Amino acid sequence: MTINFMKYRTLWLSLSVVVTVLALVFFAVWGLKYNIDFTGGGLLEIKFIQERPNIEEVRSVVTSIDNSISVQDSGDNNVIFRFQKADEAMHQNVVTELRNKYTDKFQEERFESVGPSVGKELKTKAFYSIILAMIAIVLYIAYAFRKVSYPVASWKYGLFAILALIHDVLLVVGVFAVLGKFMGIDVGLPFVAALLTVLGYSVNDTIVVFDRVRENLGRISKISFTDLVNRSVNETLARSINTTLTTLLALIAIFFWGGVTIKFFALALIIGIFSGAYSSIFIACPLLILAHRKKQ
Score class of each variant (00 low, 15 high):
Leu195Thr: 06
Leu195Glu: 07
Leu195Ala: 08
Leu196Val: 11
Leu196Tyr: 10
Thr197Asp: 04
Gly200Met: 10
Tyr201Arg: 05
Tyr201Cys: 03
Ser202Asp: 06
Ser202Ala: 14
Thr206Val: 07
Ile207Val: 15
Val209Ser: 02
Val209Gln: 00
Phe210Pro: 02
Arg212Met: 05
Arg212Asn: 12
Val213Thr: 05
Leu217His: 11
Gly218Leu: 10
Gly218Asn: 14
Ile220Asp: 07
Ile220Ala: 08
Ile220Asn: 10
Ser221Val: 12
Lys222Glu: 15
Lys222Thr: 15
Ile223Phe: 10
Ile223Val: 15
Thr226Ile: 11
Asp227His: 03
Leu228Gln: 00
Asn230Ala: 03
Asn230Leu: 00
Arg231Pro: 01
Val233Asn: 00
Val233Ser: 00
Asn234Ser: 08
Glu235Val: 06
Leu237Pro: 00
Ala238Tyr: 04
Arg239Glu: 06
Thr243Ala: 12
Thr244Pro: 08
Leu245Lys: 00
Leu248Thr: 13
Leu249Tyr: 09
Leu249Arg: 12
Ala250Lys: 12
Leu251Trp: 03
Ile252Asn: 12
Ala253Asn: 10
Phe255Ala: 10
Phe256His: 08
Trp257Phe: 15
Trp257Thr: 15
Gly258Pro: 03
Gly259Thr: 12
Thr261Cys: 05
Ile262Lys: 07
Ile262Tyr: 11
Phe265Thr: 01
Leu267Gln: 03
Ala268Met: 12
Leu269Val: 09
Ile270Leu: 14
Ile271Asn: 04
Ile271Leu: 14
Ile273Val: 15
Phe274Trp: 08
Ser275Tyr: 01
Ser275Thr: 14
Ser275Lys: 02
Gly276Arg: 02
Ala277Arg: 05
Tyr278Val: 02
Tyr278Leu: 03
Ser279Val: 11
Ser279Arg: 07
Ile281Val: 15
Phe282Thr: 01
Phe282Arg: 02
Ile283Ala: 03
Ile283Glu: 07
Cys285Ile: 07
Cys285Lys: 02
Leu288Ile: 12
Ile289Asn: 05
Ile289Met: 05
Leu290Ala: 15
His292Ser: 11
Arg293Met: 04
Arg293Trp: 07
Arg293Ile: 08
Lys294Pro: 00
Lys295Ala: 15
